[in-house]
Every structure is written in C-alpha cells, then in structure tokens.
C-alpha cells in the first residue's frame, strides 16, 4: 500500500466519524423526520467542533504537503458525504 493510500485511508476514516455524527444529529434533518427519531439535535458549539474535527485531517495533509492525498481526501469526503445523505434518507424511507 502506497503512502498516499495510507494517508487517505487514515484521513478519510478520521473525517467520516465526525461527519456521521453531524449527519445523525443535524437539527434540520431531525426536524424533517417529524419526531420519528429519538436523537436530540446537536448544539451549535458541538456542531462547529465536529465540523472542525471533520476538516482537520485535510488541514494536516495540507500542512504536511501531501497534496495528492489531500485532493483524494477532499473528493472522497464529498462523495461519501453525498452517499451518506442518500443512505440515511433511504434507511428512513
């Protein structure tokens, strides 16, 4: 496994967990469920902290100068974020 592949795997793994937490307890999403979920909306401060946590691995890759890994991480985060929304919606319906 190449260095880029390892860096992308670690960074994406570290970003997806906070992203999933953000998605699960997103106030707008929970409101659209109209009480179908028992989860409580997350406070603004916690959401901001999780957003930073999700973006932090990309920042680390930038600082280290791993640009290919950074681009793949960014693209992967976008693609999996989109997929996550679809899956959460499909699960609900």
């Amino acid at each position: 496994m190449s260095l880029t592949a390892i860096a992308v795997t670690l960074a994406l793994g570290a970003s997806l967990l906070p992203l999933l937490l953000l998605a699960l307890r997103d106030p707008k999403r929970l409101r659209s469920l109209a009480g179908a979920s028992s989860l409580a909306p997350m406070a603004v401060g916690a959401r901001r902290a999780l957003t930073l946590a999700a973006l932090l691995p990309g920042g680390v890759l930038m600082v280290l100068g791993y640009w290919p890994a950074f681009l793949i991480w960014l693209g992967g985060l976008i693609a999996t974020g989109w997929l996550m929304v679809q899956l959460l919606a499909a699960r609900r319906s």
Binding site: D26, V85, R92
Partner: peptide
Amino acid sequence: IRELFTLRKKKDPLLVKRDA
C-alpha cells in the same frame, strides 16, 4: 447548505427529486 444532510424522502416524489 444548512440542509446539507436533509433529504425529505416522505414528501412528494418531485420534491424529493428537487432535494436530491
């Protein structure tokens, strides 16, 4: 953008399409 995680699946099909 604030509705980045919101896809309303139980609404009218065309609204779902617009959300998607």
